[in-house]
């Protein structure tokens, strides 16, 4: 049963992945990609990691919706409403993807996979949490700070306005001059 679900999820994921490059609309390509990633979440679920599987679905839906907004906003034709192609640099991409696929497939057969020792735990979620938040706590904390710093830095670089534009030369203008007002009356 599990094997059937696993294989069908894999096939659907691949079909959606192909659709990403066949579709001529950015919205369809984005949501085909979402379909593929949701199948990957399903695969992780079937493999016995329910938390990671469901979180992949959750995160990917949010991510792909936000990505759709940006991809359509930045597309080369106005509003992204005209047919387009997702294929660029076809020869180079073909060679590159063939090489990656070949090496990954070779790795599957060459790696000496370990045999299972013991039995799987009842609650894998707890184990995932322990693995991430136990020995790897420092890594997670550092990663969190790096991600936050990247987000803040990217936002600062993208903004034309700074604090002097908002608060005046003496930083004493209250309320700040903002292009759009917010909900808490600042």
């Amino acid at each position: 049963m599990d094997a059937v679900v696993l294989w069908s999820l894999g096939v659907v994921a691949l079909a959606c992945a192909v659709a990403v490059f066949v579709c001529d609309s950015m919205a369809r390509a984005t949501f085909a990609l979402l379909g593929s990633l949701v199948c990957v979440g399903g695969v992780v679920l079937v493999l016995g990691l329910p938390y990671l599987g469901v979180v992949i679905v959750l995160m990917m839906v949010m991510e792909m919706v936000v990505m759709a907004v940006f991809m359509i906003a930045y597309m080369m034709n106005p509003a992204g409403l005209m047919p387009m192609s997702m294929l660029h640099n076809q020869r180079g991409a073909l060679a590159l993807s063939a090489a990656v696929f070949a090496s990954l497939t070779a790795a599957v057969f060459l790696v000496p996979w370990p045999h299972r020792r013991g039995s799987p735990p009842r609650d894998t979620t707890f184990q995932v949490g322990k693995a991430l938040m136990g020995e790897q706590m420092l890594t997670m904390i550092v990663l969190g700070f790096v991600l936050l710093a990247t987000m803040v830095a990217a936002t600062v670089l993208a903004l034309r306005r700074g604090r002097y534009d908002r608060l005046g030369d003496g930083l004493d203008r209250r309320p700040a001059r903002d292009p759009a007002g917010g909900g808490v009356g600042r």
């Binding site: 329910p50 938390y51 469901v54 979180v55 679905v57 959750l58 839906v61 609650d123 979620t125």
Partner: peptide, 9 residues
């Protein structure tokens, strides 16, 4: 076992 996350997803 992850019902809460399921609802959120």
């Amino acid at each position: 076992s992850v019902g809460l996350v399921w609802f959120n997803a």
